[in-house]
Nucleic acid binder design. Structure first.
Length: 575
RNA sequence: CGGGGCGUAGCGCAGGCUGGUUUAGCGCGCAUGGUUUGGGACCAUGAGGUCGGAGGUUCGAAUCCUCUCGCCCCGACCA
């Protein structure tokens, strides 16, 4: 392609509306243009990247035997009523009526449609298992679109659905998709982690999120560097730290602490560090009042607490309940003398002693409160939110917290949809059973933003070879110099003839501008043709990343082919 | 949905508080001609605006008031 003919509106100045790095670079490099909030066009260069990403996803999905199909984006309301999600999805779904007043929605996801297809076609266990997928535009009326293409209202997603007759079969599909996802992210050159995620309301067993590490990420991920444990902060486990921080037991002492309600106030007032305090939080779990003890410097993880208790409804107790149960104002609750209340304590309470606790009396705390001697704990568990440097629950390592972007999600759905929609099959014994499903998504457009977040410098994008819009850029420094021009054109034709995706900057622009555009759009390889080519007879090959070397004219196309092949396989040898 | 910011030429901005020498400016870009060409060159000439929209106040509104639309950021929400 000739840059003189390309629709490539690179921007010299920073676009005002863009904040995140990828958003800014995508606008500046002429990849996308906004039509409305969270709605973008892909310009020719951006579209080429998109197509490459899609191709990689297709290859890896096909490799595991998944089959591509294409479903409608326009969904009738009735279908979504079957699962109750028409109401549940609420405002996040674009909804409207057709001319005959029939209600429709634009698909934010396709569980209903795919289940409808399968229930009409698959009748017997002989038709299972199946993995079906599509790459399609999705619509979600996000309350707050953000970071350009990262969180849009219209975006492209690869969504896959598996159908199996047994848990084993469903599990195998899950594993297959999981490995396909790993290969996809590796081929895209991404630094990613598959992290354990909370299955949430859908319940059931496993769920993993594929997170790409990035400063601008919206999600927090907990990672152990020694054993590779990785989990969403919402459910990250914290290991125990044994036997540290103990002193000789001292005598329990009641201390006046007028008006000192928060951990910070009490700790300052008494001159005791906050981890020596125990925070006593009262919750209502399925209507019953419980107390949760965590060190003063830590927060309760309600997701983990809910799971420990096995309760469906968990909420902080209201002021009235707190005052009734502890017999004092809010801020002075403690475990000593709390009658008839189940006390749950974080494991870390075992690690210390001589604690400061609320006295269940307004304006008073106890000093030197000790486990078993002064108060009893009903259940010990891991109920605090993980923090940096916490011990890993599975090895001796310590935890790290990273920001990440969620790019993929794999999910064991079970029979939630098949039961609601009567997607049944006849098993070997002639019994009718609901199909066991899984669903698996990859945010395709978001992925492009994530690649840029991870691969750029102050001058622009650095495309991995696997998704680069063109593999190589030929840049004649001065197009009015006939030697440079002719040599560049010659090389251009030569590379084109070998089916190499090559871009030539044949614009009559100043050298500086051409160099800067080259850095901005991030083509991985380039040939700079200038005075030196004429003087030395050698041609400069340079990587977008910086390294450069010179090669004889005759060797160029062979050399380039080789470089493209090698780079296409890095950073990991996926074949 | 709550809080904050911003809409003036293709892009980035000034002007606005204190209405009138502003015919609405500047830089970049764009067009034409010429000189240039290894890191955003230079000279000359030129085109390009219903100052987001509607209504109001006023002799007079980009500027003041009301409403409205759009975009961005923080939070809530969502996965």
């Amino acid at each position: 392609m000739r840059m003189s003919e390309l629709l490539l509106p690179t921007l010299f100045e920073e676009p005002r509306e863009a904040e995140s790095i990828s958003h800014r670079l995508m606008l500046r490099a002429g990849l996308i243009r906004m039509l409305a909030a969270g709605i973008y066009s892909f310009l020719p260069l951006g579209n080429r990247v998109l197509l490459k990403v899609i191709r990689i996803i297709r290859e890896e999905m096909d490799r595991i035997g998944a089959q591509e199909l294409l479903m409608p984006a326009l969904h009738p309301k009735e279908l979504w009523m079957e699962t109750g999600r028409w109401e549940l999805y609420g405002q996040d779904m674009f909804k409207f009526k057709d001319r005959k007043d029939r209600e429709f929605g634009l698909g934010p996801t396709h569980e209903e449609v795919i289940t409808d297809i399968v229930r009409k076609i698959v009748r017997s266990y002989r038709g299972l298992p199946k993995i079906l997928y599509q790459i399609q535009t999705k619509f979600r009326d996000e309350p707050r679109p953000r970071f350009g293409i990262m969180r849009g209202r219209e975006f492209i997603m690869k969504d896959a659905y598996s159908f199996g007759r047994s848990d084993e079969e469903a599990g195998a599909s899950y594993e297959n998709v999981y490995t396909a996802y790993c290969r996809i992210f590796e081929r895209l050159g991404l630094d990613y982690r598959a992290v354990e995620a909370d299955p949430g309301l859908i319940g059931g067993s496993s769920s993993h999120e594929f997170m790409v590490m990035a400063e601008s990420g919206e999600d927090l991920t907990v990672i152990c560097d020694s054993c590779g444990y990785a989990a969403n902060l919402e459910q990250a486990e914290v290991g125990e730290r044994r036997g540290e921080n103990k002193e000789e037991l001292r005598v329990l002492e009641l201390k006046e602490t007028p008006g000192m309600k928060t951990v910070e106030e009490v700790s300052n007032f008494l001159g005791v560090s906050s981890e020596r305090l125990i925070k006593t939080l009262l919750y209502k779990a399925d209507g019953r009042v419980i107390a949760v003890l965590v060190p003063g410097d830590r927060e309760v993880n309600e997701t983990k607490l809910r799971r420990l208790l096995g309760c469906s409804c968990l909420e902080m107790a209201d002021v009235k309940t707190i005052e009734e149960v502890s017999g004092c104002e809010v801020g002075f609750s403690g475990p000593i003398g709390l009658e008839g209340v189940l006390i749950i304590a974080d494991e870390s309470i075992k690690e210390g002693n001589n604690f400061v606790v609320g006295a269940n009396r307004t304006d008073a705390h106890y000093l030197n409160a000790n486990l078993d001697r002064d108060f009893k704990v009903g259940i010990f568990g891991d109920v605090k939110i993980a923090e940096e440097k916490d011990p890993c629950s599975r090895c001796q390592g310590s935890l790290k917290i990273c920001r990440g972007i969620e790019l993929g999600h794999v999910f064991k759905l079970g029979t939630q949809y098949s039961e609601a929609m009567h997607a049944l099959f006849m098993d070997e014994e002639g019994r009718e059973r609901p199909i066991i499903m899984g669903c698996y998504g990859i945010g395709v457009t978001r992925l492009i933003a994530a690649i840029i977040e991870q691969s750029h410098d102050e001058k622009g994008i650095i495309w991995p070879m696997s998704v680069a819009p063109y593999k190589i850029l030929i840049l004649p420094v001065n197009i009015t110099d006939n030697f440079q021009k002719d040599l560049s054109e010659e090389l251009y034709k030569e590379l084109l003839d070998q089916d190499i995706e090559v871009l030539i900057d044949d614009r009559d622009e100043s050298a500086g501008r051409k160099f800067n555009d080259a850095d901005l759009i991030g083509i991985p390889l380039r040939l700079f043709i200038g005075k030196k080519a004429k003087e030395t007879g050698k041609i400069e090959i340079s990587y977008r990343t910086g390294e450069k070397f010179f090669e004889e004219r005759e060797e160029i196309s062979e050399k380039i082919k080789g470089l493209i092949d090698i780079s296409a396989k890095t950073p990991t040898d996926y074949l």
